[in-house]
């Protein structure tokens, strides 16, 4: 008997290349004086939800910032090794970072809507990328808010200030804002750590719905959250990948002793 694990069955076809292919990734800060990632080699499966877990300071957030070149904004940082998005070197010199950021959206720990209306927040990205038609923008705003499971709650007050929304709604607004430009990848850095359990559950449901439509990488401190939402889980420790595997296996019989110790709380 086969049990469904929730959500649409998303299995990466064996012939499907990974969304990201990362080999021998080193990341340095402070002009090379600090190394935060060491020889990281990992594939990020296309259309899957990948959770990245590990203790504070293990390099998991830095890893996320490598995936959309946000790390470029940190003075004195340097990336070495291979990071490919759809087989294309992410760190080649002539890569258009603006185009990249449209393909790879990001949601942060604290909801950070712009101090504008709900509508303006969602329409912001498409406008930056040149969408001018009001009716087209209206369509994009509605579609994105629907995908972020926020439409029904805000459709009657689209021109109210975004900062008037609850924390959980603000976070879903930020997700809608990221979705509005049609990204292929969504990076989420602790997206629920500032939210109450009900708001957290809604975001997790939403991640489940996005599964298959785009590739999601989520950094979380909450092991149960990783277990609930992720197809694949990766464990980082001291800037290295200790173990990557299917989530169900990862949390029932991890292969590496260090993973075992971390997920059972035997690591202080």
């Amino acid at each position: 008997m086969a049990f469904r694990t929730g959500g649409p069955p998303v299995e990466p076809a064996p012939d499907q290349p990974p969304k990201y292919q990362i080999r021998g990734l080193d990341l340095f800060y402070h002009g090379g004086r600090t190394q935060v990632l060491h020889r990281v080699g990992v594939d990020i499966g296309r259309g899957l939800v990948t959770a990245v877990i590990g203790p504070s300071g293990c390099g998991k957030s830095s890893f996320l910032q490598v995936l959309n070149r946000m790390v470029d904004e940190i003075p004195g940082s340097r990336v070495e090794g291979l990071v490919e998005l759809d087989g294309d070197n992410l760190y080649r010199e002539d890569l258009d970072v603006v185009v990249l950021r449209r393909r790879v959206g990001m949601v942060f720990q604290a909801p950070n809507p712009f101090p504008r209306s709900i509508w303006d927040n969602v329409a912001f990205g498409p406008r930056v990328h040149g969408v001018r038609s009001r009716s087209r923008l209206n369509e994009l705003v509605e579609a994105s808010l629907r995908r972020a499971a926020l439409w029904d709650e805000v459709k009657d007050r689209l021109h109210h200030p975004a900062l008037g929304l609850s924390g959980g709604q603000q976070q879903r607004l930020c997700i809608a804002r990221a979705l509005a430009v049609g990204p292929e990848v969504l990076l989420m850095d602790e997206p629920c750590s500032a939210l109450d359990p009900a708001a957290t559950a809604r975001i997790e449901e939403l991640i489940g719905e996005l599964r298959g439509q785009l590739t999601v990488v989520i950094v979380t401190h909450n092991l149960q959250q990783a277990a609930r939402v992720a197809d694949v889980t990766a464990f980082f420790l001291h800037g290295q990948v200790v173990e990557v595997g299917p989530t169900a296996e990862f949390f029932t019989r991890p292969r590496d002793r260090r993973t075992e110790d971390y997920v059972t709380g035997r690591y202080g």
């Binding site: 092991l223 277990a227 949390f251 029932t252 019989r253 075992e260 997920v263 059972t264």
Partner: peptide
């Protein structure tokens, strides 16, 4: 306690 890994087993 939401046990994991060997604890879950």
């Amino acid at each position: 306690q939401q046990p994991m890994a060997q604890d879950l087993r």
